[in-house]
Amino acid sequence: MFVAIANTPRDYAWGSASAIAELLGTVPSGGPEAELWLGDHPGSPARIVDPNAVGGSADLAAWIASDPRSALGDRTRLPFLMKVLAASAPLSLQAHPTAEQAREGFERENVLGIPLDAPHRNYRDAHPKPEVIYALSESFDALCGFRPLDEARLVLVALGLDELVPRLSDLSGLFAWLMGGGADVDDLVARVSDFAAARSSGIRLSEDEAGALAISGAIETVRTLSAAYPGDAGILSALLLNRVTMRRGEALYLPAGNIHTYLSGLGIEVMTASDNVLRGGLTPKHVDVGELLAVVDFTPGPPPWLRPNEVSPQLGVFRPGNPDFVLAHVAGDAELDLSGPAIALCVAGSMTIRGARSESTIMRGEAVYVTPDERRMTFFGRGEVLLATTP
């Protein structure tokens, strides 16, 4: 069964005024449009376009609750959430918990009597939130995970923060000190912000090309974050992180504990269905540095690129090794077997999808929920589809 779904973009302040509307072919709201949720998460369940097709249920959460067998097959919940994300300003500096941390945190805050919708609540459900981000715009800028230490040293020295270099031997201690703020941290933030403002982001400060790119990227990061959140301690913490520019069609996998933020761009996110976010700065929302430090993985290393399994020239499948989701990119005639439910979003042209029981044609901006009994799906048409499903 193919069930047409839609939703209204969430209006977080960092959202783009036009990117989601342009992708979907809709009229912009006039305000920021940051995230379009396609799933059954209670924070913003997808609307069912024709409720009569599913017994009158108005949204995906209501339909799954009323008829889980038809909607989910043998599963007890929809394990993934798909989002369209459009950032015109940096998101909060954040990380997500493991499954165990999510369960413990959710139970702890329930015992404390913190309402689920309270602004200061950290854990809004009992699930982890690993995620894949796939770039739809020609470039998508992000910070993700701690840089290799040699690169961090190079960046700190180049930006005039030599006194922080010895502290790299205790990365978690340095990060905690920076996030804690105070007069000394404020002085460093002001110094590095002034340094970045006085220099071109493209200046060549190293004979090594990779080093020069890391330094110029760090300067641009400081300029971007200083403009959005002047004086925020997260400006310094961001220098310890990998800066990545994804090109259209590239993806990252951000597992539990990966400290990250998105700076700008349009993309598709697929994640375990959760809204658990621990924030440490670069945001007017609730910040809990202590809880963030408890979930962050301080292991330095390269950016967490996720390469697709090229099933055919028309089909690539991103498999992060997570039990809850995979992301498929379809650009032409292709076939894909389903092991569970799926959500397909057409991002260009049109595509006809034929399953074991039914068929649907979706145009740019249209999305469908696919029940597990469709099993093997055949795609044909001149379009482009992103599809989230189970491994």
Rank of each mutant, 00 (worst) to 15 (best):
N242I: 11
V192S: 02
A238H: 03
E107I: 13
A61Q: 15
H41V: 10
P9L: 09
G249Q: 13
M271V: 05
I64M: 10
V185I: 14
T261N: 14
L85T: 09
P255R: 11
V317I: 15
K129D: 04
G211F: 09
A158W: 05
A227Y: 07
L36E: 04
S92L: 00
R103Q: 15
G365D: 11
P28R: 07
A238D: 03
V185P: 00
A53C: 07
H329M: 12
V3F: 12
L168Q: 05
A17F: 03
L91C: 04
P308E: 14
E100T: 12
Y12S: 08
E100F: 05
R124T: 10
R108Y: 09
G56C: 08
D162I: 05
P148H: 01
Q101L: 01
L327Y: 12
L178P: 01
V157N: 13
A238G: 04
T390F: 04
F140V: 06
Y123T: 04
A17G: 13
R124C: 02
S350P: 02
G211C: 09
A273R: 13
L205G: 00
A6T: 15
I64D: 02
G15W: 01
G31K: 14
G30I: 08
Q94T: 06
A89W: 02
G160K: 07
L159N: 03
S360C: 12
A197V: 06
S312R: 12
V385Q: 02
V49T: 14
R108G: 03
L188G: 06
S137C: 12
A86P: 05
A126E: 14
D187Q: 13
I215N: 01
G211V: 06
Y262T: 03
Y262L: 06
Y134H: 13
L278T: 00
S139W: 04
T299K: 05
L213D: 14
T8E: 11
L178H: 06
P42E: 08
S237L: 11
H127W: 15
R167M: 13
R243H: 10
P119Y: 01
L306E: 09
G105E: 02
Y229A: 01
V155Q: 05
A218V: 04
L306D: 09
P302H: 07
A273P: 03
A356S: 15
P308Q: 15
I20G: 01
S172I: 00
A118F: 01
M1C: 09
G181H: 11
T224C: 11
Q314P: 02
S237M: 13
A99T: 13
K129E: 05
T76V: 14
T389I: 04
A342D: 07
A227G: 15
A87Y: 03
I203S: 13
